[in-house]
Structure formats: structure tokens, C-alpha cells
Design a protein around this nucleic acid. Structure first.
Lengths: 240, 240
DNA sequence: ATAAAAATACGCAATTCATCGTATTGTACA
DNA sequence: TGTACAATACGATGAATTGCGTATTTTTAT
């Protein structure tokens, strides 16, 4: 695959196609990665790429902070799992002192907690290490230009997080009459109590089948597929 | 599930490199776009691409919904700004009826409200129309495989949104040291998210059987017998 | 060093849940 | 006066959950 955004081509093309942009300075990169093999793999992916300069590497977060003092770079590729000082702490401290540096987290894990801590620490991107060389280069280009980059699976988690977050809609003029019908809200209220279908049926004097159908409709409307998620969604939207 | 890189190549390569995967079914695509020129541009970007089939196009959201009834597709590329029915409403209705369809918003605007409304409506991606053909194709492949895709600028907004969201970081050490062990609390936290046993097992790198046993122990300690009640009990006791 | 607790793991049986149908009745709205 | 929607109800089926038993390894505390 070839990534072909013309204005970015100096980053990806190492030959003749972009002569007129020769004067652009390279993007400088620092890498923090404790595992020699993984480091080698990253370096290989970035090698032979015009427009990118790997300034130095470090084997842990502390070492990176020290070296960065002496030689600052545009971008830092940061592993999360490192001895002495792991990547999230290092990122937080780095961004505190150098707010403009862009940090791209590069890790083998897509654990939710790590992702969100990385985001909170100020990382501009979060990629899985097994991304292709082109994807990593594009991510570097994107965050250098002020954007952000995420692996598809990470992006999905981010979207789901936003969806599940109670919206701080200050100007929410619409009371949003809760897609749900009155009966469905009753059912959901019962679900919230931890009741089973049969118990809800007895409580509302309807059949279990009807309870089931109502819950199907609730799931469809709320885009969920289990009780706990339905209750969460309803609570997030203040429908309960 | 993880789809190997090799299987993706048919999406990006339009010639000879992937003969052995000819039998893979194509990804079917529907496009909703009212401006003829923009539609033409998108079609051009997707043309000559093995693995992708544009099943039909529609000039507004309503038309898309109607056509989709007759011919369902894997992916829908959706413009936001359309007459009769705009893309976000159409997406919400489409996802309500067909929860599995993946919608990729493709628009010229990166207005915050539109982005977040698009996310809330269930879109799996949000790209600016001026993205390269390769980027669009990659986004289609990514969301087809269950991930999400965002233009770098959109991704940045998403990250900033998450950062600006009040984190439920309660480091107030519980005065009541919770009958539950640390591991059990982890399990319960996962339960709270609405995850199934299998998902929790994957997340914590343990077997489903172990998850089951932990949950049994939690139920016993909290004197409950289902997920919703367990979550309620834990919340009531401020253990989560 | 040893006992207790926690974490790991599996099997089996019964129950519950989730998803797909289909169908009838009443009500509201245009 | 239809048409849409809400509410009711049931069947089938496969997936997921729950309850109970057993058992090994690891960690923690005495």
C-alpha cells in the first residue's frame, strides 16, 4: 500500500517526487522502548524514510526524560510497559515540562485503563505495535500536523467511551422525551432493581413473553444487548 | 478475532497479488450523498478496487433507508448535510433497525456538535471528504473488521473531549474496606460495564471458568444472585 | 513453616436470557 | 379512515448465566 497524500509525500517518499519541498526540515523523533527486539522492529519500520530523523532512543521513561533535556525532538514514540519508569508517567512529566512535544504511544496492549490513562497523560496517539510501517509513519505525520492517531480498535473504544459518557450538554434545550415509552421505562426501572423476567411479569401483571418483547424493544432503541448495559445507558441519559 | 494483514490486501491492491483470496466475498457499500459532484468523487476514489462493491447510492437519508430495506450492505458511507433527511438522523434510524451495519460519516465539516452527534448516532467512523482514496479504503476495511476510523483532526477532538470529561477518579480510600478482594473488585468493575464472562476473561487474561468462580464468590459475599444486583450493591457501598 | 485466603481452572445441570419469528388489540394522528 | 405505534402474548432456539462440586497453585499472614 502506498499512502499518497501529496502534501505529505516528503514524509513517505525518499526519492525524487518532491523536490520543491526539499527545504522543509525533518521531523525529529525520540523512542523509548525497553525491549531490544521491539526497538529494532520500530527502527526498521522507520528506516529509509525521508523526512524522519530518529534522534535518540532510551530504554525507559527516566532515561528518556534525561536525554530529552539535552536534545529535544518533535515527536516521542513511547512504549507503555517499561522498567524504572513506565510510559504514562513519563509522558505526563514530559508534557508538563514541554507541552508542545507530541507523544505517540506504541504498545502491544489495548487494555482500556491503559488507553485512557495514556490519553489523560497527554498522548496524541495510541497505536498497537503490530501496525504496519506505513500506518506508523502516517500517524507520525498526522500528529506532527496537530492531529491525533489511533489504531482502529482503539478508536472504537474511544467512540464507545464517548457514547457511554453522560453528555455534559450545557445547552440541552431538549428534555429529550426519552425514546422509550412509559411502559418501557417501567420495565427498565424493574430491570434496574435486578429483577428477572418472571419477577417483572408478576410485578406488572403481564406475561413473561411480554416482558421479553419490551426488553427487546428497549435493547434495540438503546443499542445494547444486555441488562447491565441497558441500565447504564438509561442512567447516563437520566431516564431513570 | 483478528484478521491478518494478508487478508486485507485485496482491499488495497487491484491487480495480481492476491489471487488465492479471490473467493473472499466483497464488502458491499451503499452511499448517501446529495451533491452529484461529491458523489462522483467518492465513486472515483472507490473505483477499480477489488474487494469493494458499491451496491447503490441515494441522494438523501430517506432514500437510503428505503433502498437499504431492499438491498442491505455491509457499510454505508453517509454524508451529513443532505436535504429531506440528513445523515445523523438517517444513521440513528438505520442502526436502530440494522444494528450490525457500519456507518462511515463522510463530510466536509468538522463541526464539534456534528461530530459528537454522529458518534452518538452510532457511526463507526468520521472522515473528512478530502481524505485520500487510500485513507477512505483503509477506513472501510477497518470498520468492516469491527474497528473505528477517524480523520486525524477528528481523532484529536475526540481525545480532547475525553480528557475534558470529568473523570470518575475517586482516590478517596474507602473507609469501609470492602469484603471483596482486589481481583473481585476488578471483576465487578468489568461487570459494571456490561461485559459478558468471555469478555471479562479476555480482558483480564484468565479463563472463563475463573471469572465464573470469582462472580460466584462475589454473589455470595454480597448476598445477590445476578449481575445487575451485584453492581447495585457495590455502588451502594461505594466500592466502585 | 504452616495455615488461611485468594486466584486459578473445569465439569455438569438447571435456569435465565437474547434474538428471531408471528400475531392480536387498542389508540393516536393526519 | 387508514397507518403507525404501543402494548400485549407465545414459540423456538441457541447463548449466557447461575449454582454446585472439586482441585491446584500462589500469595498472605501468623
Amino acid at each position: 500500500m502506498r499512502i499518497g497524500l501529496s502534501e505529505k509525500c516528503i514524509i513517505f517518499v525518499n526519492d525524487s517526487q518532491c523536490q520543491k519541498q526539499k527545504e522543509m526540515t525533518n521531523i525529529s523523533i525520540a523512542i523509548a522502548e525497553d525491549q531490544p527486539l521491539a526497538l529494532k522492529s520500530i527502527l526498521k519500520k522507520l528506516s529509509n524514510t525521508a523526512g524522519l530523523d530518529v534522534s535518540f532512543t532510551a530504554a525507559n521513561g527516566l532515561e528518556l526524560l534525561e536525554k530529552f533535556e539535552k536534545q529535544q525532538t518533535n515527536i516521542v514514540l513511547m512504549d507503555i510497559e517499561m522498567p524504572v519508569m513506565e510510559g504514562i508517567t513519563a509522558t505526563r512529566q514530559l508534557k508538563e515540562k514541554y507541552p508542545d512535544v507530541k507523544v505517540l504511544m506504541l504498545t502491544t496492549f489495548d487494555d482500556d485503563d491503559k488507553i485512557f490513562n495514556a490519553i489523560l497523560s497527554g498522548a496524541a496517539g495510541y497505536l498497537l505495535k503490530d501496525e504496519s510501517a506505513d500506518m506508523i509513519k502516517k500517524a507520525i505525520a498526522d500528529i506532527y500536523e496537530g492531529g491525533a492517531a489511533m489504531s482502529p480498535g482503539i478508536a472504537l473504544k474511544a467512540l464507545n467511551y464517548i457514547k457511554s459518557t453522560p453528555q455534559p450538554k450545557a445547552e440541552t434545550t431538549s428534555p429529550e422525551p426519552s425514546l422509550l415509552s412509559a411502559r418501557e421505562t417501567e420495565i427498565l426501572t424493574a430491570l434496574k432493581e435486578g429483577l428477572a423476567y418472571k419477577q417483572i411479569a408478576d410485578k406488572l401483571y403481564i406475561s413473561e413473553g411480554t416482558v421479553r418483547k419490551h426488553i427487546e424493544n428497549i435493547y434495540r432503541k438503546l443499542q445494547v444487548n444486555n441488562k447491565v448495559s441497558a441500565v447504564n445507558m438509561a442512567k447516563a441519559n437520566k431516564w431513570l
